[in-house]
């Protein structure tokens, strides 16, 4: 029996498609964000409030992944921006090919911001690159402050932690200082925002973060010899 070394990624096919998407996003100056959380942490509500705060002329679109139903896309389409559901039919995560297919007939030159709402799950989505500029993990207060320790991969790979439902802090035993400490013990440079989609607290900072991140991306893109214009 001969042994042939391979030394490649199991998901190299996904990574290849993701790299192609990332190039297209850069070429059009699009900030693509991959929003990940457990089910019920408030991804769709945060997106509703985000879209509701953007000016009508904002060049933004959302893709939203779920195992079944197009409820989320219908919720998000009310704001007048392009919103499309990706129904995975059982898969617990989005992969790059699903994103590429969903974007097939969209005019990317008309976009500055694409937010992808992943399937609610803190494990599987962390393995799949979607071509995003940044992963964002959303953690809601009722879930408990030990989530970064239980699901370290997604906290390591996410640039930003959004702590949601902070209006519930008086009613649940959630230690905010410890939550921040746990997240930074896993990912020392992690940015952290505290928001409440019920009271609106922290939403201005969240919108500011997106704007700033878009500027960083476009500054980086301008420096790339093949893509800069």
């Amino acid at each position: 029996m001969d042994r042939i070394p391979l030394e490649k990624k199991v998901l190299s096919e996904n990574d290849r498609v993701a790299a192609r998407l990332r190039d297209r996003f850069r070429e059009h100056g699009i900030l693509c964000l991959n929003l990940i959380s457990s089910p019920g942490a408030g991804k769709t509500t945060l997106l509703e409030l985000t879209l509701g705060r953007l000016p009508k002329e904002a060049r933004v679109a959302v893709l939203t992944g779920d195992i079944q139903t197009d409820n989320d896309a219908r919720r998000l389409a009310r704001f007048g921006f392009p919103a499309r559901q990706i129904t995975t039919g059982g898969a617990c995560h989005l992969d790059a090919r699903m994103v590429e297919r969903a974007l097939a007939d969209w005019q990317l030159e008309n976009l500055d911001l694409l937010i992808i709402e992943n399937v609610g799950n803190l494990v599987c989505p962390s393995s799949y690159d979607l071509g995003e500029a940044a992963k964002i993990v959303l953690l809601s207060v009722p879930e408990g402050e030990d989530k970064p320790l239980k699901y370290p991969a997604i906290f390591l790979k996410s640039e930003l932690l959004v702590l949601n439902k902070i209006d519930l802090l008086p009613y649940v035993s959630f230690d905010m200082a410890r939550a921040r400490e746990h997240a930074r013990s896993i990912h020392p440079g992690m940015e952290i925002l505290e928001v409440s989609c019920t009271t609106g607290e922290g939403l201005d900072q969240w919108i500011q973060w997106i704007k700033k991140r878009g500027e960083i991306l476009r500054a980086e893109t301008a420096k790339l010899p093949t893509l800069g214009r």
């Binding site: 029996m1 001969d2 042994r3 042939i4 070394p5 391979l6 030394e7 490649k8 990624k9 199991v10 998901l11 393995s127 991969a153 390591l156 930074r184 013990s185 020392p188």
Partner: peptide
Amino acid sequence: PETLMAGGDELDLAYLEVEE
């Protein structure tokens, strides 16, 4: 506290064993 990841996120194909 600031240490760097040095391994653990592998999801790699390492080798094949084949017969002629």
